[in-house]
Each structure stands twice: as structure tokens, then as C-alpha cells.
Design a protein around this nucleic acid. Structure first.
Length: 953
DNA sequence: CTGCTCACG
DNA sequence: ACGTACGTGAGCAGC
């Protein structure tokens, strides 16, 4: 097979890609323009795919000046600064090139075309077919060598064009490719600011060369050229000669073609996945990586992967954070590249090249031996295999253990559940050991599985998923991905055992034991190794406190809450569903009657067309980014006056939402064994440190509207001896703002116990607290919340329906009266700009790579995150600590009551009536002292008791 | 599978 | 001229 070398002129391709899409830019959800990255990737992949090169390299210009610059100061002096978007793309593009495992060639003092020219000719001499990938026509001169071609990529569906010498000559209307430099010398090049001969363009240049063959000969015959043209040539001969020199591509640059280096190599798929995910290349990512892109996409987390840059820089002396703590060594906010930290663990060894021992433990005798062995170990990695991803409905299929790398044990569990219980009895001494630290990936799952068998682990928890969460809160952290990233090893995929998700997915129970053993033991082995690999990161990032004091201890708390579940009044919901059905249907009919057409009211697309095209309602709605009319609640409210059907539409929306999302959905989630609903808390999803809840989400049960809050009547105590308690923090986020900003006015208001929104209104409007009107309080409340999120005048105006002038006035007053808060906002953004992250009171960090972006929108996002994350995150730290303390206290007091739900600033308990007196103060006290705030800002919490969640409020 | 809409803090 | 308040999960329509 012929050897085919492709040399890419990176910057030329990037510029071309960027401007090709300029009128129809690709913008990510975070506002980044990704034209260049997209165009470049497309070109690169298409050529790899279609042309099957055997060798590849990408060439860049460097910043160093070239001889052309020293010889001719005007050279490229007309170039405008490249757009910021485009410059920002370079890091991504280099990452992509690295992902494709292609060498980058750049030589100081030489431009990419010189490098490419030199390499092309060398390779061609060695018998390669060489394709120079560029949109630049100047390369035509290099086609003097007969094995060299220009490969001009197509843009926006255009076709690729491969140019040989003949085609180049045809383009320029010349006879020999040698004449390309002559023609460039004559006509110049506006793009590079090469003058040529003023007044001589492409056509004239070709005509002259046809007659005189070379530039030099044209000049020699200048006197024979008649008329104005002759005059121009005579005046411009020096300029022309210089221009020719500038346009001549150097073919003896100091660079050597080594064929080994440029050979096509395996892609670094993890790098590609990471960068494609960040750039939101969904379709393209899938086209390039196929199903593997899906595998790594499978978790819920979006967009960004944060850096994991191990910083070896020395700690800067005297650096303090906003809370006066030492800060870790400066982490670059920009240009952060994922690079696993050097671990104490030997990274050169991996599962590919190191013999491993995975041992099947399939008799009671072997199991007993294993237990004895494990009892001597302090740290044991543990993993379960089960029949179901829902731990509440799963049977144990087997357990794996590992306490040293490359050695793991797999213990199959019999299908007969009684026998499995007997097997677990053998392990009881181990499970009961308080000396053991249990290492695992998402141990909550395994703990929950065991809990259904009546087993609890007495030891400590070390969850690698949570370690990664605090190190890199925005990253994705499936086992596959972590293993690839930190251990450089791609584990056996679960699909290889039980097939892909969906109908065809099989059951772990049906897989032969040997296969499960290899998979399961490997999982425990990998997880143990991950622990070693992640450990240095915890230290480097200074997130050990939040990891050991908050996240790990919370695992058992959440396990118990999920196990407990909550009782739902199914009958009540069935009845309520009928009412909603009937009322929604009435509203729907009203809409059709009022509009004069029948359509699908549940379709925003159809509704938009009816409202704005058929009924021509005003104000005409803005379009969404897909070109549809927006029909969200805010839009509809502005239309409410113009047509009575709008009210009915809103009613229909409200009722169908309640019905489908809650009233009809919740009964379907009732567990058959318990008759209760068991949500699942995601502990490593929300970037700020909050929990999230799913299957079902019990953190967004309606409360704001009358018909919505009815649903809370369906959340009821275990039985008639029980009641529900709801305990919630009062204004926790604002207290945190006051405390960490130290603003005297706001701190004082909380210390005095004055209603915070009234106090704010009094300051902003310059009146006594007693004189604050309802409206002033309402507006002040909106400002208070807006501040937490970094809202501006526009947002406040929109929110309150007031003018931007008034909004600005309110905000200006606010900033003046609460100067400490203004300072906090400045300080926290400055801190982020300098260090690349912000943090909570417990040292939970969030990295903000865009904080120094010059893109207004992108930077704005990061700045608002800088303001909000420490607040939201500190509140999350606080309630998590409270949960741990309350859980401990309930255990210690041997109470029958249970914590069952968490909703960010609220905890719900299923309480035995006889324990009410003891548990209420226990809850309140622990919530208040969980995380003391600076500046003596008091923390308040309130409890309510009732026969339903609604009544408990 | 994606985008829109809407439920919560 | 830009776009404008943070963090989530779920159901539905329509491609």
C-alpha cells in the first residue's frame, strides 16, 4: 500500500473554519463559540476517515518572528488581532490533536507553510504521496515535486478538492507550477500585506508570465512593455522581487521528516471524549467515537470536565481565602488540562501489564478463610453484583473484595435467598468490625443492597466516587472513565456481560460465574487502585476536610433515608387525579372554543402558532433558539390581558403538569415490598455540593400554588402512631451571605431577629422598619434573592415588572447600604480570578475556568457562579453536617423515628408520637450548631408537626 | 434524543 | 451588540 502523508496547516484551517460559520455560529449552552474547533475536527476526521492516511502531522506557526518579518516590516502587519473566540479555540484544538494522537510540528522562526514545504519534499523524496491540507493557494508552488498535492477541505457540505500541478496551473492560467511564485510576486497578496506591483492583478500577472515566463524576465523586459502597464512594472520591480521572495515557501527549514513519528497511532479516546463533551459535539462525537461516546456519556452530568491539574508549585506564603484559611497553591484558571496527579502508587504498573490474581470463593470454607484474612486488613475495597440497578429491588449475585492491588476475591451468592442470608452470616464478623474502612465506588448502592438483607457495615466509608466529586465537582465519574483517566486502563464493560440497556439487557444472575468473577474482581481491584490514585488529589486540592467530615459520613445517612422511604396515600392521589383530569379538560375545551380551532394544547409549537399567527396576539413572542415561538409562563402572563384563553392555557398547563409529573407518577413508584416510595439521592452530581433527588424526585414536590400543595397531603406518616415533622432553616442562604461578607447592617438585622426583607427595605428606601410597605418589602425580598445569584438591573426589572431605571436605583441603594455585601461580591470574583476557584466554609471548592475569559457572556456566567457557589455550597455543607449529627443522635438514643427526606434547607422525619418531645429539640439543636457561622450570625430553624407533609409545614 | 416547559430550593 | 439569576429532575412533543 502506498504511504500517504497528510500535513495540516492548522491555523489556516482554523481561520477558514471559523469564518465559514461566522453567520451561523455554533454556540454552546455556556455561550462559547466553537466554530473553529468544530470545523477543524470535522476536517481532520473526514480526511482520516476517507483518505486513510498512513502518516499525519499538524503544523502550527509560532509566535517567533520569521525572516520575512525582519526583511519586510510590513509583512502581515495589516493583520487584525484574531477574534477572542478563535484564540480561545487553540487550546481545545491542541487537545483534540493530542486526542487523535497526531504530532504537532512547529519551528520557531518559520511559518507553517515553510515547515510543511520542507517536510513535504523530504517525504516525497522517500516515495510518499504527500497531501498538504490547506485552503491557501500559495502552496501551489510546492507542487513542483510530483508526489506532492494540495488537499483543500470542503466547508459546509462543499466537496474536498485535491489539486495536482495541472489543476494549479489551470487555476492561475499559467503553464508551470514554478510560476506560482512569479505570479504572487507580481500581484502581491493583500491578506499577507505583500505589495506586489500595484495595479497588477491575477489576470495581468498571468498575461505577463505567458509572454516572459518568469518574473525576472518580465523585469528584464520592462522597457519593452508598452503603456501604463510598462510604467507600473518599471516602478514596481523591486517591490515585485521582494514580494516573490516573501511568497516563496522555504523548503529547507530546520526540520527533519521521521516517518516513525508521523505514523497513524491509536487515539486517546478519553481525551477526545472529554473535549468533545465540553464542546458539546454530540453528533460529531458520536460519529467519531461511536458507542464509546455513549458509554462515557451515560451519567447525568453535563458539559464541563474540570481540570485535575496537579500543582507542584510551592504554596504562596500568606495566601488567605475569603474565610481567612490558607489556600492551596495557585491553580491556573485557564488552559487547564486534565492530567492525573502523580500518585504514590506506581503508575507504570497497570492491569494490562501486571499479572493479577482474581480468586473465586465458592465454598463456605473458602469464605471463612477469606473473612479471617480480611479481618486483619484495615482497608478493604468492596463491591456487590446484583440483579437490578435499583438497589431497593435487587438481589445479591455476588460480592468482591480487594485489599491489595492486582489481587481480588469474588464470592458468588446463591439464587436461593435463604442461602444467601446464610452466606452473609459468615461475613458478619467482618461487616461488624469497627476497625475496617470500606473503600468503594458509590458505596451507598452496596450498603442499600446489604441493608435489605439486614446487614450494616460498622466501619468507616471511603467512597472513590465522592473523592472524585470533591476533587473535580463538574467532572463525570463513571468507573470506566475514572479507570481510563487515572489508571490508564479500560475495564471490562458491564455490557459485555449482560448486554446493552433496554429490552435486550440480560440479568447478572444468568451470567456464568467465571465471567462475573473476572468482571467483579476487577472492579474491586480497580476501585482500590483508584483510591490510591485519587488520594494525592485530595491533598493537593485541599478538599480532605469536606471529603472526610461531610461526604463520607453522609453515605450511611442517605442509605438509611433511602431505605426508609416515605408513605404515600395512593387513594388520595387517585381521587385527585380525577379532579385534575376533569378541570384540565374544561380548561382545554375553553381554549379550543376561544381560539376557534382544535389543536394539541400540550404542544408548545402548535400553541405558539395559534397564539401568534392565527390570533395574532401582542406582544409578539420572542422565538426560541430553534425558531419556535416561546410560550413559557412569563410570555403567557404578558398576554393574559389580551385574550381570555390565556388564563385557560395557564390553568391547563398547571393541572396537566401536576397530574402527569406527580399525581399519576408517584403511585407508580411505590415499592411493592414496602408500600413506600424510596427516592434516590445523588451525592456527586450537583456542582455546588447540594444533593439531588431522583426516581422519583422528591425535592420538587409542589408547594407554591393552592392546587399544587394539595399533593403534599399525600405524603403521610408510617401509621397512626406516627406523625411527620418538617424542620427547615430560616433564610439560611442570606444568613450565610451576611456571615461570610461580614456586612454590619445585615449581620445586625439577623442578630436582632428582625425580618430580613423588612430590614433590607428599610435601608434601601431610607425609612424606619415600622414604616416599610408591603410593596417595599416585596421588592426588597426580590433584591435579596437576586443578590445571591448575581442578578443585575435587567433581571430585577424583569422580575418585578418595574423599569430598569427603578431597578438600577434600588440596586445602587442596596449596594450603598450593604457595603459589606458589595465588597463580598468584588472579593469573591477577584479571588476566583486569581486562584481559579471559590470555596465554601468547609473548603468545598468549585473551579471556574472561564472567570478570566474576555467573552462577556462566558465570564458573566463564571462571575455569578463565583458569587453564588460559596453561598449555596455552604448551605449544603451545613445541612449535610446536621443530617450526620441527627442520624448519630437518633442511633445513640435508640429512637424509632427516622429522617426520611431532605429538600436543601428542610429535613422531614417520620416520627413516633411518643418520641416527639425528645426528637424536636434534638433536630433543632443539631441543625443550629451543625456549622457555626462567622461574625456570630445566628442560625435559626423551625419545626412543624402534622399528619401530612402539608400539615407539618 | 433534544428542546421546551415547569416543579422545587 | 451582546444577554441578562444560581442549582436541580421529569414529562412531553417532535425530530
Amino acid at each position: 500500500m502506498a504511504k500517504k502523508l497528510f500535513l495540516l496547516d492548522a491555523l489556516a484551517l482554523i481561520y477558514r473554519a471559523y469564518y465559514a460559520l461566522i453567520r451561523n455560529p455554533r454556540i454552546t449552552s455556556k455561550g462559547r463559540n466553537t466554530n473553529a474547533q468544530f470545523g477543524f475536527t470535522n476536517t481532520l476526521y473526514d480526511l482520516i476517515n476517507k483518505e486513510k492516511p498512513t502518516h499525519l502531522a499538524v503544523c502550527f506557526d509560532t509566535h517567533a518572528p520569521t525572516e520575512r518579518h525582519t526583511e519586510f516590516v510590513e509583512y502581515k502587519a495589516n493583520r487584525q488581532e484574531a477574534p477572542e473566540d478563535l484564540l480561545d479555540s487553540l487550546d481545545d484544538i491542541k487537545k483534540i490533536i493530542k486526542g487523535f494522537n497526531i504530532p504537532v510540528v512547529e519551528v520557531d522562526g518559520y511559518e507553517a507553510d515553510d515547515v510543511i514545504g520542507t517536510l513535504a519534499w523530504q517525504a516525497a523524496d522517500q516515495g510518499y504521496e504527500v497531501y498538504m491540507v490547506t485552503p491557501d493557494k500559495d502552496y501551489g508552488q510546492l507542487l513542483i515535486h510530483k508526489n506532492v498535492f494540495i488537499y483543500k477541505p470542503g466547508y459546509q457540505g462543499g466537496d474536498v478538492e485535491i489539486l495536482d500541478a495541472q489543476k494549479v496551473c489551470d487555476k492561475w492560467s499559467i503553464e508551470r507550477v514554478e510560476q506560482v511564485v512569479d505570479i504572487l510576486g507580481l500581484m502581491g497578496d493583500a491578506v499577507d500585506n505583500i505589495p506586489g506591483i500595484p495595479g497588477v492583478g491575477e489576470k495581468t500577472a498571468a498575461k505577463l508570465l505567458k509572454e516572459y515566463s518568469t518574473l525576472e524576465n518580465v523585469i528584464a523586459n520592462a522597457d519593452n512593455i508598452k503603456g501604463a502597464l510598462g510604467e507600473k512594472v518599471r516602478n514596481g520591480k523591486e517591490s515585485a522581487l521582494l514580494s516573490k521572495k516573501l511568497a516563496t515557501i522555504i523548503t529547507d527549514a530546520p526540520v527533519q521528516f521521521h516517518e516513525e513519528d508521523y505514523k497513524i497511532k491509536e487515539w486517546n479516546k478519553v481525551d477526545l471524549i472529554e473535549v468533545f463533551t465540553e464542546l458539546e459535539f454530540k453528533t460529531l462525537g458520536k460519529r467519531i467515537l461511536g458507542d464509546e461516546f455513549n458509554v462515557f456519556q451515560s451519567t447525568t452530568v453535563a458539559v464541563q470536565t474540570e481540570m485535575f491539574a496537579a500543582t507542584t508549585e510551592p504554596k504562596e506564603n500568606g495566601q488567605k481565602d475569603l474565610f481567612g484559611n490558607d489556600v492551596p497553591a495557585k491553580t491556573p484558571a485557564k488552559a487547564a488540562v486534565a492530567e492525573p496527579v502523580e500518585s504514590g502508587f506506581n503508575a507504570d504498573k497497570n492491569i494490562n501489564n501486571t499479572p493479577h490474581e482474581y480468586i473465586l470463593v465458592d465454598t463456605d470454607e473458602k469464605a471463612k478463610d477469606l473473612v479471617q484474612k480480611l479481618l486483619k486488613e484495615k482497608e478493604i475495597c468492596f463491591d456487590t453484583e446484583t440483579t437490578n440497578i435499583d438497589a431497593n429491588d435487587a438481589e445479591l449475585v455476588g460480592m468482591s473484595f480487594s485489599y491489595k492491588p492486582f489481587e481480588a476475591y469474588y464470592v458468588p451468592a446463591p439464587a436461593d435467598q435463604e442461602k444467601t442470608k446464610q452466606l452473609l452470616e459468615i461475613f458478619k464478623p467482618l461487616f461488624d468490625s469497627t476497625e475496617t474502612t470500606w473503600i468503594g465506588q458509590n458505596l451507598k448502592y452496596d450498603l442499600l443492597v446489604l441493608k435489605w438483607y439486614g446487614i450494616e457495615l460498622a466501619g468507616n466509608i471511603y467512597d472513590t466516587m465522592l473523592a472524585h466529586y470533591v476533587i473535580e465537582p463538574e467532572g463525570r465519574r463513571s468507573m470506566d472513565l475514572l479507570s481510563a483517566q487515572y489508571l490508564n486502563y479500560e475495564p471490562v464493560h458491564i455490557e459485555e456481560l449482560i448486554g446493552k440497556k433496554g429490552k435486550a439487557q440480560g440479568n447478572m444472575r444468568d451470567v456464568e460465574v467465571e465471567k462475573i468473577k473476572d468482571y467483579a474482581a476487577e472492579d474491586a481491584d480497580i476501585t482500590l487502585q483508584l483510591k490510591y490514585a485519587l488520594q494525592p488529589g485530595l491533598k493537593a486540592k485541599e478538599v480532605e476536610k469536606v471529603f472526610y467530615e461531610v461526604e463520607n459520613p453522609l453515605v450511611k445517612v442517605l442509605t438509611d433515608m433511602e431505605f426508609e422511604g416515605v408513605r404515600i396515600d395512593e387513594g388520595f392521589l387517585k381521587e385527585y387525579s380525577r379532579i385534575l383530569e376533569s378541570d384540565a379538560s374544561d380548561a382545554e375545551q375553553n381554549v379550543y372554543a376561544g381560539a376557534g380551532v382544535k389543536f394539541n394544547l400540550a404542544s408548545p409549537k402548535q400553541l405558539g402558532e395559534v397564539l401568534f399567527e392565527k390570533l395574532k396576539l401582542d406582544p409578539k413572542a420572542k422565538k426560541t433558539k430553534t425558531g419556535q415561538y416561546a410560550t413559557g409562563e412569563d410570555v403567557l402572563l404578558k398576554l393574559a390581558q389580551t385574550n381570555p384563553i390565556v388564563d385557560d392555557i395557564l390553568t391547563f398547563r398547571e393541572l396537566t403538569k401536576l397530574k402527569s409529573t406527580y399525581v399519576d407518577a408517584l403511585p407508580l413508584m411505590i415499592n411493592r415490598k414496602t408500600g413506600r416510595v424510596h427516592t434516590s439521592y445523588a451525592q456527586a452530581v450537583a456542582v455546588t455540593g447540594r444533593l439531588s433527588s431522583n426516581n422519583p424526585n422528591l425535592q420538587n414536590i409542589p408547594i407554591r400554588t393552592e392546587r399544587g400543595k394539595e399533593i403534599r397531603k399525600a405524603f403521610i406518616p408510617r401509621n397512626s402512631d406516627h406523625v411527620l415533622i418538617s424542620a427547615d432553616y430560616s433564610q439560611i442562604e442570606l444568613r450565610i451571605v451576611a456571615a461570610i461578607s461580614g456586612d454590619p447592617n445585615m449581620c445586625e438585622a439577623f442578630k436582632q431577629g428582625i425580618d430580613i426583607h423588612t430590614a433590607t427595605a428599610a435601608k434601601v428606601y431610607g425609612v424606619e422598619p415600622g414604616e416599610v410597605t408591603k410593596e417595599q418589602r416585596y421588592k426588597a425580598k426580590s433584591v435579596n434573592f437576586g443578590i445571591i445569584y448575581g442578578q443585575g438591573a435587567f433581571g430585577l426589572a424583569d422580575n418585578l415588572g418595574i423599569s430598569r431605571t427603578e431597578a438600577k436605583e434600588i440596586i445602587d441603594n442596596y449596594k450603598k447600604e450593604f457595603i459589606g455585601i458589595t465588597k463580598y461580591m468584588d472579593n469573591t470574583t477577584n479571588f476566583a480570578r486569581e486562584h481559579g476557584y471559590v470555596q465554601t466554609l468547609m473548603g468545598r471548592k468549585r473551579w471556574l475556568r472561564d472567570i478570566n475569559s474576555s467573552n462577556f457572556t462566558v465570564r458573566g456566567f463564571a462571575e455569578r457562579n463565583a458569587i453564588n457557589s460559596p453561598i449555596q455550597g455552604t448551605a449544603a455543607d451545613m445541612i449535610k453536617l446536621a443530617m450526620i449529627k441527627i442520624h448519630e443522635a437518633i442511633k445513640k438514643e435508640k429512637l424509632q423515628s427516622r429522617m426520611i427526606l431532605q429538600v436543601h434547607d428542610e429535613l422531614v422525619f417520620d416520627v413516633v408520637k411518643s418520641e416527639l418531645d425528645i426528637i424536636q429539640p434534638l433536630i433543632l439543636e443539631n441543625m443550629k450548631i451543625a456549622l457555626p457561622l462567622p461574625n456570630d450570625v445566628p442560625v435559626e430553624a423551625e419545626v412543624g408537626v402534622g399528619d401530612s407533609w402539608l400539615a407539618a409545614h
